[in-house]
Computed example of a mutant assay.
Amino acid sequence: MKGKWAEELALAHLLQKGYRLLGRNRRTPFGEVDLLMEKDGVYVVVEVKQRRTDRFGTPLEAITPRKLSRLLQSARYLLGRDDLPVRLEAVLVHGDPKGFRLEHRVLEV
């Protein structure tokens, strides 16, 4: 799995920021959730995107409106309820293991 290192990097970053891991690579009928976390009573679905170059678009550009919708559906499916506080976030990794820049942001649905 070529992006495994990026996911490990993202997880370490989030744990350092006080997030708690609830699940990893969880499959749902709507797609896969890379990381399911919790922070301050809010469930956080984290999409990890890594690109070596921006030649074919940035990691953020790879997260389409359809992908956002599917992430939200996946979160509700995994949590079993629609009324729980959920936030979508992305950890974007620009580069490769030899040299990278990490970007962490909240995604707007």
Score class of each variant (00 low, 15 high):
95 G>L: 09
77 Y>E: 05
81 R>L: 04
32 E>K: 07
99 G>L: 14
21 L>S: 05
78 L>K: 12
40 D>V: 03
54 D>F: 12
39 K>Y: 02
6 A>Q: 07
77 Y>H: 11
28 T>H: 04
94 H>L: 10
22 L>C: 02
23 G>S: 03
98 K>Q: 09
77 Y>V: 01
34 D>W: 02
62 A>S: 09
93 V>L: 14
4 K>S: 10
15 L>G: 03
91 V>S: 02
62 A>R: 14
81 R>S: 06
26 R>Q: 00
99 G>A: 15
44 V>M: 01
88 L>Y: 01
37 M>E: 01
20 R>H: 06
58 T>W: 08
64 T>R: 04
83 D>V: 15
68 L>A: 05
2 K>S: 13
109 V>R: 11
78 L>D: 02
97 P>I: 07
35 L>A: 03
108 E>L: 12
52 R>G: 11
91 V>P: 01
51 R>F: 05
89 E>K: 00
29 P>N: 07
87 R>D: 15
79 L>Q: 07
67 K>R: 10
24 R>F: 00
25 N>I: 02
2 K>Y: 15
61 E>A: 07
102 L>D: 05
11 L>K: 01
72 L>Q: 04
44 V>S: 00
85 P>T: 15
7 E>M: 08
55 R>K: 15
43 Y>L: 11
53 T>M: 07
54 D>Y: 10
6 A>M: 07
73 Q>F: 08
100 F>H: 12
47 E>N: 04
90 A>K: 07
48 V>M: 02
8 E>C: 05
100 F>T: 03
25 N>G: 08
66 R>M: 11
72 L>S: 04
100 F>N: 12
76 R>N: 05
52 R>I: 13
95 G>Y: 09
71 L>W: 00
68 L>E: 05
40 D>L: 04
22 L>Q: 00
28 T>I: 08
74 S>G: 10
67 K>M: 13
49 K>Y: 06
34 D>Q: 02
1 M>A: 13
70 R>E: 15
95 G>C: 13
50 Q>W: 10
9 L>H: 06
9 L>P: 04
55 R>V: 15
6 A>L: 08
71 L>Q: 01
52 R>Y: 12
15 L>C: 08
53 T>R: 13
79 L>K: 08
104 H>C: 11
56 F>W: 14
67 K>S: 10
19 Y>M: 03
95 G>I: 11
93 V>M: 10
23 G>R: 00
45 V>R: 00
83 D>K: 14
38 E>D: 09
5 W>P: 08
78 L>Q: 12
24 R>I: 00
59 P>H: 08
19 Y>T: 05
15 L>F: 05
15 L>Q: 04
40 D>P: 03
94 H>T: 02
56 F>G: 13
33 V>S: 01
67 K>E: 15
37 M>D: 01
104 H>G: 10
97 P>V: 03
65 P>M: 07
49 K>S: 05
9 L>I: 06
105 R>M: 11
84 L>N: 11
6 A>F: 09
32 E>T: 15
29 P>G: 11
7 E>Y: 02
91 V>D: 06
